[in-house]
Design a protein around this nucleic acid. Structure first.
Lengths: 149, 149
DNA sequence: CCCATTTAGTTACCATGATAACATAAATGG
DNA sequence: CCATTTATGTTATCATGGTAACTAAATGGG
């Protein structure tokens, strides 16, 4: 997350950039992008929390759901589609299972592995969360690049 | 942070968006922005870690340093310039003090409050970190919007 | 002036990201 | 074919974000 409420002034960026041979316009747009993305992610986090989810829990559900021709994925396959560490994936899948949103079954073919599938409740939760998710993304990008907020 | 390695296909976004009455172009650009910002923030975090800092520790140093006409700020003033909760500010200032990058003195005028000022080491650390910080921002924005990376 | 409210900072606890080190199973190759 | 290497998932621990509830000091209306 990027937190600075007021971005450095053009003047300050210009001074620094000149000193260090960087492009002030690039720096300003990078800072703007980070601030805008941070605010959007924060808004999404609040939205997901209100739905008993989180960014990562939501993405796990999506990734299982959108897999063509298969009803389940292994933790490793899910982790390879989402850029997250293995222990975080373990923990997240366990919590999704506890909440009844996915099932975790031992793999038939590889005794080390598991198969994660959406439950009816998980599929429902995903359907419930999707409209608001897309609405928030769409709304945020429709707004002007944002000054102070 | 936003983690999906492969963004939803244009087709999938289009289907969802149509269903929910959102603008597919906005959704795609929001997802791209979040992914790009997340990668940039991750790169910055690694850079700061290598300098014994973090995003937040760095921002605290900057905010104190760039304050005109004053050598110190109260924790509350710093928190008001950086969008972070009070307990996190408390913890961060204590760790910066332990590492000798700032000094924390009791306020003369308000016995509840403190005054945080940069030490020579803190000012030096900031100067050391700034060039690479601006270089990373500049480089990242010079690259094309990124496909898979 | 004094009690109620507000404000500053802290403590305790939780959420969610990371790495390192491990057990177990699968794969490989001499 | 068995020994070594590789792969999967887990545990333990840390980092760094949050909220709720607390203490102590400042403020302010009756």
């Amino acid at each position: 997350m990027f937190f600075l409420k007021e971005l450095p002034s053009q003047q300050m960026v210009g001074t620094y950039a000149e000193t260090y041979g960087a492009d002030p316009a690039h720096i300003t747009s990078a800072l703007l992008m980070m601030r805008r993305a941070s605010l959007l992610i924060r808004r999404l986090d609040a939205y997901f929390a209100a739905h008993g989810l989180s960014q990562l829990r939501f993405l796990v559900l999506i990734v299982i759901d959108r897999e063509p021709d298969r009803q389940s994925l292994t933790p490793n396959e899910i982790a390879s589609r989402i850029d997250v560490s293995k222990p975080v994936m373990t923990r997240t899948l366990q919590s999704l299972q506890q909440d009844g949103l996915i099932s975790l079954a031992a793999s038939q073919t590889d005794k080390r592995s598991k198969e994660a599938a959406l439950t009816a409740a998980g599929r429902q939760q995903l359907q419930d969360a999707l409209p608001g998710y897309f609405r928030i993304l769409s709304e945020e990008m429709a707004r002007p690049p944002a000054a102070g907020d």
